[in-house]
């Protein structure tokens, strides 16, 4: 009878422990494929003129939401509550945030799009959420955002909601 080595079989748990951690990047792929969590909006880095010449002229309403640890204190809010997006047309808008503290604060905005399955049709060209932002003490800053609707958007996509949740630097983790 062929013997099974306990050492060999012990490799399985070791590999599976690693697999547990591999689930973290796999999960991101999963989110991208299925649209889970509304994280898979498109980040556009190419030539902007290619966006404009797509031929699709569909429109959709984009609604802006803002949340912070203590929303009123930070006065974190979008300049406009909503705006009309048109495929290929680049739209720029701002979020405003006031640092109420005596010291500069580093913030990170975490975006989320609803409905999650349509998030891929939101194209971000420029967003303050791509990097951390430093807000000087007692000052108000405008955070820019440039977006458009994807030319791939099917007809039924007539509205999107874009939400930002603001986190302060002290609550940020170390994975940046």
């Amino acid at each position: 009878m062929k013997k099974m080595s306990p050492w060999k079989i012990s490799l399985v748990p070791v590999l599976m422990f690693g697999f547990g951690f591999a689930l973290v990047p796999l999960y991101d792929v999963f989110c991208e494929v299925t649209g889970l969590n509304g994280k898979n909006f498109e980040v556009f880095t190419g030539d902007k003129t290619t966006l404009e010449n797509s031929g699709n002229h569909q429109t959709a309403v984009l609604q802006f939401l803002a949340d912070a640890d203590s929303r009123d204190n930070w006065h974190f809010k979008p300049e406009k509550k909503s705006m009309e997006l048109q495929a290929g047309k680049l739209m720029t808008t701002y979020y405003e945030v006031t640092n109420p503290y005596d010291y500069p604060v580093t913030i990170q905005a975490v975006p989320s799009v609803a409905p999650g399955e349509w998030a891929e049709y939101l194209v971000k060209i420029e967003c303050f959420c791509f990097t951390q932002q430093v807000v000087p003490a007692h000052s108000k800053v405008k955070l820019p955002l440039q977006v458009t609707l994807s030319a791939k958007a099917p007809k039924e996509v007539n509205h999107l909601s874009l939400s930002y949740r603001l986190y302060q630097s002290e609550s940020l983790g170390g994975t940046f």
Binding site: V24, F30, Q108, V110, S171, L172, G173, T175
Partner: peptide, 17 residues
Amino acid sequence: SFFNAAGGGDPVMFQHV
């Protein structure tokens, strides 16, 4: 920040794993 949205993590991922 595996599960902390503030650091780019995701509490829903906890549930999946």
